[in-house]
Structure formats: C-alpha cells, structure tokens
C-alpha cells in the first residue's frame, strides 16, 4: 500500500511532506485497528433488530401480521445472540493484537465486563423465576436488564477510549432498556428491535463512514 523505497533514510523534503506522512500513517494504523468495529456494531444491529422482532412475533398480541411459534422465535433470538457474541469476541480480540501493556489491561477489563454483566443478568433472572416471576414478567426483565448492562459497558468504553460514538450509543441503549418495559410485553420487544437495533445500525454506519473519510 505504501510504496516506500527500500531504505527511506534520506531527510524529508518539506515540513508539509513530514506532517502529511505522520497523518497518513496514524490514520492507516487507526483504520487497521478499528476497521472491524463497524462489523461488530452491524452484527449487533442484526441480532437486536431481527432477534427482538422474532420475539415480538412469538407472543400473543405481538406482531399483527404473522405469528411465530414461541420456541422458534426464542431459538432465532438465541442463535442471533450467539452469532453476535462470537463475532464480537473474535473481531474484538483482533483490535489490540500484538499490543501489550496498559491498554491491553483496559481492553481485558472491558471484555470481562461483558461476561460478568451478562452472567449477572442471567443469574438474577433465574432468581426472579424461582421467586415466582412468570414468563411475561421475565420477558420484560431480560431485555431491560441486558440493555442496561450493555449501555453501561458502552459508557465505560467511552470513558476508557474517549469515544464519543460509544458515549452516544451507551446512553441510547441504556435509555431504551429502561423505557422498553414501560410499553409492556410483548411490545417492549418491538421497542428493543426498532430503537435498540436502530441505534446499533446507525452507529455502525457512522463509524464506517468516519473511518473511510479518514482514509482520504
């Protein structure tokens, strides 16, 4: 890509050339490291958008156009979620590859937070179920609790990497998680699909566009 002469040992011609070289190289590093992030966001947009639409179509009183058997809707949701988790883990692990030190520590904490947060949501759900929460109540709890965890982790990411994208996404996801249950089941799933999935989709497109703009 960068067709440099074999040695490149000569002094640069001008300060403009030097500044341009710095800028170009640092952008290329950024693109190389962050190029996978829009894909992570895109996969989550699909998982939330289609997954919650499937759930919404699985309950009575949900999708007015067609209904899916609930086990099928649940399986679609689960499969999309697993695919998104695997993609995020694989692509995410590639972002900081070859780099060790302080930022690798931050990255590891960020990764572990997802596991701890998701596990906590799951275990609390089991506790609620044992305490007598029925399916309708749990179908409000799970998306809301998971969205709150996800939103807060994005806010942590925003603080760690001073990322405005993650700040906006984190606030939206946390708010969607908190507001969705107010619509009651199963409409909360539609809210999650449209607003949550929509937020991921917009974030993916914005990030993709800003990375390719920086390429110029």
């Amino acid at each position: 890509m960068n067709s440099t002469p074999p040695v490149d040992d000569e002094p640069l011609q001008s300060p403009d050339e030097a500044l341009a070289l710095i800028r170009e190289q640092q952008r290329s590093v950024e693109r190389e490291q962050l190029g996978g992030v829009p894909w992570i966001l895109g996969v989550w947009a699909v998982a939330w958008g289609l997954g919650f639409l499937a759930l919404w179509s699985g309950y009575d009183g949900g999708n007015p156009w067609f209904q899916l058997p609930l086990p099928l809707a649940g399986s679609i949701f689960g499969a999309l979620l697993v695919a998104a988790i695997v993609t995020s883990a694989v692509v995410g692990a590639r972002i900081g590859r070859g780099v060790r030190g302080d930022s690798a520590f931050s990255g590891a904490i960020y990764g572990v937070s997802w596991v701890v947060g998701s596990a906590a949501v799951f275990v609390t759900g089991i506790a609620l179920s044992r305490a007598g929460a029925d399916g309708a109540l749990l179908s409000l709890y799970y998306p809301a609790a998971y969205a709150l965890v996800a939103g807060l982790i994005y806010l942590m990411g925003a603080a760690l990497w001073r990322s405005l994208d993650q700040l906006v996404l984190g606030v939206i996801i946390a708010v969607v998680g908190a507001v969705a249950p107010l619509f009651g089941a199963p409409t909360n799933n539609l809210v999650m699909a449209v607003l949550g999935g929509g937020a991921f989709l917009v974030a993916a497109i914005v990030m993709r566009v800003s990375l390719s703009r920086r390429a110029r």
């Binding site: 440099t4 040695v7 490149d8 002094p11 640069l12 030097a18 070289l21 710095i22 640092q26």
Partner: peptide
C-alpha cells in the same frame, strides 16, 4: 526526519 523512521515513530506514538 527521514520517511521510514518518521512512520515508525508516528505508529509507536
């Protein structure tokens, strides 16, 4: 102030 070392330094920075 030489292309190769500037790119290396910019990357590390």
């Amino acid at each position: 102030h030489a292309a190769a070392r500037l790119r290396i330094t910019a990357t590390l920075a």
